[in-house]
């Protein structure tokens, strides 16, 4: 069965094909329009999806040497995300499903990220802990088995990637903030500035707004010359503070639940400093750590097609009345039947 996956929950327009043979083709159209605005402008994102989704789907079909008649199902992200973006992908998917009389399966975007580590073997052994860190989401999830999740904690304010974007803005580094901070931090000392770590000892929730404010006050207090001189140190110290919090919480969850793997997914998982910290953690604790290839960390339809393939095999189908769910929780999705 060949599953067409569609992902348009934020500002990436993506399509992919997944089957028993694995990933057949995938493509992501990155919307550069948002860069000069310092963040995703929902109206522009929606307009861009309308212009680029059809060519993106055509591309993966052609790339795999297939025709639409070869498809067995359509999997599409229906939440969480920007409603104006979700409706484009969801309705294109429904149009395809009606015209080709194919099963439709709606995928929770966060669950999609979890499946990013199941595109290529070796797969993480379960139960596992999965840290989902991106520009829109920061969640720590206990994955008992695929399809069975418990959200242990989530951010109470900014998502980790959002904190990178906001701090990059404070430091005048541009958007997207993740790569900008990482580049600036390369020449800096991580312990140069002691920024607070919002650890909240008794909770798996995250909070990055205090850290962001600390960077803002620190930056404001510097003279323009000092700002330039200290830029690398401030970026490196901020990045280290975020990495420390993410790693500490993930490790604590791994230990408390005695899991067999730790997965880190989402756009922030591309950050090389975080990846290095995770390698060190794996070496120190023996917990196997899984991070997808960079292209499958950021939003992509390969993970959606993969999750759809899994659910379809377990008999899950969505009704044509499936509505976009901008605030969808991971806990609220249906479980596959055994």
């Amino acid at each position: 069965m060949i599953v067409l996956g569609i992902e348009t929950s934020c500002d990436e327009t993506s399509a992919a094909l997944y089957s028993e043979q694995g990933l057949l083709a995938h493509a992501v159209h990155y919307q550069a329009v948002h860069e000069e605005y310092g963040g995703v402008v929902p109206e522009f994102a929606s307009r861009a999806h309308m212009r680029t989704l059809i060519p993106t789907i055509r591309y993966v079909i052609r790339r795999a040497g297939l025709s639409f008649r070869d498809l067995g199902a359509v999997a599409v992200t229906y939440g969480p995300g920007l409603v104006g973006s979700l409706i484009v992908g969801l309705n294109v998917a429904k149009g395809l499903a009606v015209a080709l009389r194919l099963p439709l399966v709606g995928i929770n975007h966060i669950e999609g990220h979890i499946f990013a580590n199941f595109l290529e073997e070796p797969f993480p052994e379960l139960p596992g802990v999965c840290l989902v860190v991106s520009g829109g989401h920061t969640q720590l999830v206990l994955v008992r088995r695929l399809g069975d999740y418990q959200v242990l904690g989530r951010t109470r304010d900014d998502a980790a990637g959002e904190a990178f974007d906001k701090v990059a803005r404070i430091l005048g580094l541009g958007y997207p903030g993740g790569p900008a901070i990482e580049a600036a931090a390369a020449a800096g000392q991580e312990n140069a500035v002691s920024f607070p770590r919002g650890l909240m000892e008794n909770s798996y929730d995250f909070s990055f707004s205090g850290l962001k404010t600390a960077v803002l006050y620190y930056h404001r207090a510097l003279s323009p010359q000092e700002r330039e001189k200290r830029l690398a140190d401030v970026a490196a110290s901020f990045q280290k503070a975020v990495v420390d919090v993410l790693v500490a919480k993930a490790l604590r969850a791994c230990q408390e639940f005695g899991v067999r793997s730790l997965s880190v997914v989402g756009g922030v998982a591309r950050n090389r400093r975080l990846r290095r910290a995770l390698e060190e953690l794996a070496a120190e604790t023996g917990i196997p750590v899984f991070v997808p290839k960079p292209e499958f960390c950021t939003d992509n339809a390969a993970m959606i097609a993969r999750a759809g393939f899994f659910h379809l095999l377990h008999g899950v189908r969505s009704d044509l009345r499936l509505a976009p769910a901008p605030s969808l929780n991971l806990d609220s999705r249906y479980l596959p039947t055994d």
Binding site: E43, S46, M50, I54, I57, G89, N91, V92, G95, L96
Partner: peptide
Amino acid sequence: FTGLRIGLAFAKGFALA
């Protein structure tokens, strides 16, 4: 805008197939 997008996106998917 939302209504138009729903109709056009659906039509595009249908006609693409």
